[in-house]
Amino acid sequence: MELEELQSAWTQMSHQLEKQKELTNEIIMEMTKEKYRTKFKAITNFEKAGALVCIASALFIFFNIPKLDTWYLLACGLIAIVFSIVLPILVLGSLKKIQCLDIVNLSYKDALLEYTKSKTKLLKIQRYGIYASFIYLMAFLPAIAKILNGKDLFLEPSTLLWKTIVMAVFLLIIARWGYGHYKRVTSSAEQLIKDLE
């Protein structure tokens, strides 16, 4: 099949499409309104749900700060609060940037460039977020154990150790999967950016 044949198939399809005017004014306006409504329903995605959980846990620790009665447990609590707030803010900020792309005024090249850069930045934040969650885990576990059970895990090193190991293994699996995904997406994205700039 030659390029000219592809072109003629496309032209033939264009002619056939021209003959079919299926949409009515009512369908078009209903389509527009429906999309407007679903824009506001689309809040329930993973990132936003995750952010809500993080903020809820930060608030929970914050309101139970008085229970963290040693300097190291207090430090763990504060670290956990900072991580729970900063990471979702960074992720949601990057997501917002992608969603706010000026699709009307940007050229195709610039839109593609902006989108690819924002997407890469988001993936980078998510990747670092996975690594940062190891630190978060180390701070969160002792703080939450003290708040919920009144236990100071630093006085029970074996419990702290096995709980940390179980969660670290879980995180490691996620991190490995995330890294593979990150590598695949960003290598093609970086190539595209290089090609366009």
């Binding site: 399809m13 264009s14 499409l17 021209e18 079919q20 005017k21 299926e22 949409l23 009515t24 004014n25 078009i28 306006m29």
Partner: peptide
């Protein structure tokens, strides 16, 4: 405005489809 917009979309629906 709605009528003008709908007419525009109807006119170019083939393009949008492609």
């Amino acid at each position: 405005k709605e009528i003008a917009f709908a007419a525009l979309v109807r006119e170019h629906q083939g393009l949008l489809f492609k």
